Every structure is written in structure tokens, then in C-alpha cells.
Computed example of a mutant assay.
Amino acid sequence: MPNRRSFLKDIGIAAGATLLTSSCFAIPASQTASHKKLRFGFITDLHHLQFGKNEQARIKSFISSVLKENPDFIVQCGDFCRHTNSDEIMAEWNRFKGPKYHVLGNHDMDFCDKATIMKFWNMPKRYYSFDKDGFHFVVMDRNFLKKQDGSLVDYDTSNWGPFAWPQRSFTDQAQLDWLRDDLAAAQFAVIVFMHQPVFLSDFYQETGNADDILKIFDQANLNATRKKTGNKIAAVFMGHDHDDRHGQRNGVHYFIMNSASYVYTNSGAHYYKDPLYAFITLDPAGILTIEGRSSTYRDQTPDVVRARFPTRISNHKVGF
């Protein structure tokens, strides 16, 4: 984390997103007649035990809100916890008895391989999709390193250390092929979850083969438009950057969702007093609403950090 973030975080690069071609759309009435609004709880980048910080109180706050809100499911978007000394985190997570979904983040493999953390989380597959109440959800795994010979290797026990930024955050070809087929077969509007951003990020050197993914998204939406079907990609939710951003590209809403815990800059980790998370509502009429949480910095934080990095997940109401 320190090596990755120290280059750009303190030089004050603007947080504004570039807005490209957008086109709002609603799901065809034939596909919405029996569908209700869907609501899910979202949290990302908890980073339990990162820098030795126990984040049980943050996940407890999130789950307590989840139990009050009673969403249709919850999802954590990566960098959640390690496979040891995290039983209390999973105990809190499992207080919610409804459907729960995991996304692999890079730091989840700081001390183990993917299979180990997936077993600890009870996560059957590293990438997958599911349908829920008239929406199609896709979970991606972007945790591959590109070797000098062009081959990819899984993130495994901090093995990314020797790799320079351009070799990180790749997605394997088998998954890209699956993604293309999965989107083509989807029957409903699509929501995507991934840890590392493919759009809006300042860390342009750490986007791996993001262009390959964006081309698949673009083609999927172009095909859906031509065929006048309701399976366009509506939104992509991303973590990793510990930032709060929204932008559109070719009809897709992209959201970088802020960390539940802190932002890291050259001056160190600056923790939020209260945890950040969100509840997201999908209306089959074509409206996406984000209700985010806000906080303040907990400790002495330089003014330049306070001015650049918001302690919130912003509220949004957008058409898709």
C-alpha cells in the first residue's frame, strides 16, 4: 500500500471525473412487471489488521446498520481481512443471515493464496455471477501479475512486491472470455463489482489490462442497444483507491467507493473516525440510488489531505 499510493496521493491531482458518452435506459416493461426495488449493503477496503489496526468496531457498525436496514444482500469489495486473527470479523459479517458476497482484493492475499482466503470466507469461486430480483450481478477477480514472458500469475502471499506497477492488476484470459459470454447471456440489467478500478483512477500505471475489460463492456452495451434488450451494464462498483468518484463512460456509471477505514498518503495512513459504507437501491424503472455514510478524520491530518480526500461515500441518484 505505501509504495503504491505515495507517488500520486500527495501531489493534489484533481478528483473530477471525465464524463464521456452516456445514455440512460430503463429495463423493458416486460421484464419489470413482477420485480420490486432491490437494495444491498456495500463496504470495501476494511483492511482489518493493516498497520496493526483492529477493525472489528467498523464491521460491527456496518452489520448493525445492515440488520436495521434488512437489505436483499450485502457485498464487500475487497481488501477485507486476512485468513488469521480475523475470526471476530467473520463473526460480525455472519450476523447477517441473508445472502453475502465477496470480491477478492490485492491485500487479501498478503499472507496466503487465493484458495486459502476464499475458504476462510466461504467464497466458492474467485469470479462469478448471479441473478437477483430482476438484476444480473457480476463479480470479477483482477488479482494477477504479468511476468516478463507475458504470462499471468495469481497474487499469492505478497508476491507482487518485485513487480513494478505496469505488471499489476491484470485479469486472466479465461475470465475475460467468461465475462464476454456471461454478459451476452444476461437477461437483466447488469451490475459489476471489482476491486481494482478500470476507469476514473489516478493510478493509471496500475490498471493492468483494464482496456480489455472496457472493450468488453462497450461491446456488450452496444449489442444490447442494437438488439433493444434490457441487459445493458448499468453500473460498475470499484474499491482499491480509497477515494470517492463517479463518472460515466458509454452509458455505464462507474463508482470508485471509499475505504471503510482510511486514506494513505506520503504522510501515512489517516483514519476516519467512523466507518464508511453505503446502501444502494436499484429501481427496475431505471434509477440507482446510493445512500453513503460520512465521517471526519480521527487524528492530526495535514490540510492538503483533508482538502483532497473526502471522508465520505457520496450520495447519488442516477438514471440507468
Rank of each mutant, 00 (worst) to 15 (best):
R82V: 12
F80L: 06
Q50R: 11
S65D: 14
T21H: 15
A29Y: 11
S64Y: 09
F62V: 02
T18N: 10
L46Q: 03
D45A: 04
C81A: 13
T44F: 04
F80C: 00
I13W: 10
L46P: 01
L8T: 09
T18H: 11
K36V: 08
F96R: 04
I59S: 00
H83S: 10
L20W: 10
A33K: 12
H47D: 02
S65I: 01
V75E: 03
A91E: 14
N54K: 09
L67Y: 05
Q50S: 08
E92Q: 13
Q50H: 15
R82S: 12
H47K: 00
T18D: 15
F7N: 12
K9V: 06
S64A: 12
F40C: 07
F40S: 00
D79Y: 04
A14S: 15
A29E: 15
T18R: 15
F62W: 02
D72C: 06
I13F: 14
F7Y: 13
F96P: 04
L8S: 08
L8E: 04
I63A: 03
I43M: 14
E92D: 11
I89L: 06
G78L: 04
T44I: 06
L49Q: 09
Q56T: 13
F7K: 15
D10H: 10
L46M: 07
I59Q: 01
R58M: 06
Q31Y: 07
L46W: 00
